[in-house]
């Protein structure tokens, strides 16, 4: 790879911005400050509230976006997954992320798990665990990692995402904070998905069709593990 095109572009930008010719005279303080401070800009009121307000808003917004939300106690997770899948729990091909928090799903005798980990193109049901849920828009934050394949989020027909009330946060900024806490070396996971409802398209005569290339259905299983939020 030649470095010349890079120099051409950067020199063009510097000339257009009328930068001093001596690099010593160029200050990057404003850039350094912005990258260091990571200051939140305008945070809308819908991204703020008490814990229980945020959880309720998360549910309402996820449903508006077309997701079906089931709220249950943590030990009811496997039953809730079986319930939302209905008959396809046994007949469908189910792929479950390797995340140990999902072990009880595999242990259930009312559900046939095809594999743990990366789905094949034929697995029609995928079960994963979210890092966080954003109340602002009813969005699920999924981060790739050894226990969390990212293709699980888009390859299936039916996507089941488990999220805990203790992981429901206000807005995007709170989501970024969670993400940064999860990677102390400062390098984000390879793929971070913010998922809001099932896939859709309006490309044929602006008629919204749910279920485009990604999942046709999105089920959210919300586990009540946060005493501050209060029960169902």
């Amino acid at each position: 790879m030649s470095s010349r095109p890079r120099d051409t572009i950067l020199a063009g930008i510097r000339a257009a911005l009328k930068r001093p010719t001596d690099p010593e005279d160029i200050s990057t303080d404003a850039v350094d400050d912005r990258l260091r401070s990571r200051a939140a800009q305008v945070v809308p009121a819908i991204a703020r509230g008490t814990r229980s307000e945020l959880v309720n808003r998360f549910i309402a917004n996820a449903e508006t976006a077309g997701a079906a939300v089931t709220r249950t106690a943590p030990d009811g997770m496997a039953d809730a997954v079986v319930a939302v899948l209905g008959e396809s729990a046994v007949s469908g091909r189910v792929a479950v992320a390797a995340d140990p928090r999902l072990d009880s799903v595999e242990a259930s005798d009312r559900l046939t798990v095809e594999r743990r980990g990366t789905p094949s193109g034929d697995d029609v049901i995928a079960v994963g665990h979210a890092m966080a849920g954003l109340a602002e828009t009813g969005t699920l934050l999924m981060a790739s990692g050894p226990d969390s394949p990212s293709s699980l989020n888009v390859l299936s027909d039916t996507h089941v995402i488990v999220v805990r009330t203790s992981d429901i946060v206000g807005g995007l900024e709170d989501g970024w904070d969670r993400l940064r806490q999860s990677c102390p070396d400062g390098m984000l996971p390879r793929t971070v998905h913010l998922i809001t409802g099932p896939s859709r398209t309006g490309d044929i005569e602006q008629t919204i069709q749910i279920g485009a290339h990604g999942p046709r259905q999105l089920h959210v299983i919300l586990l009540d593990d946060d005493a501050d939020v209060g029960g169902i």
């Binding site: 976006a65 390797a98 980990g117 990366t118 969005t139 790739s144 990692g145 050894p146 394949p149 990212s150 293709s151 888009v154 390098m187 984000l188 996971p189 390879r190 793929t191 971070v192 998905h193 913010l194 998922i195 809001t196 409802g197 099932p198 896939s199 859709r200 990604g214």
Partner: peptide
């Protein structure tokens, strides 16, 4: 529906 952040290639241990 999808906002996707892609950072580098897959990491060691990543299944996909």
């Amino acid at each position: 529906t999808y906002t996707t952040l892609a950072t580098g290639p897959r990491r060691e241990g990543d299944p996909d």
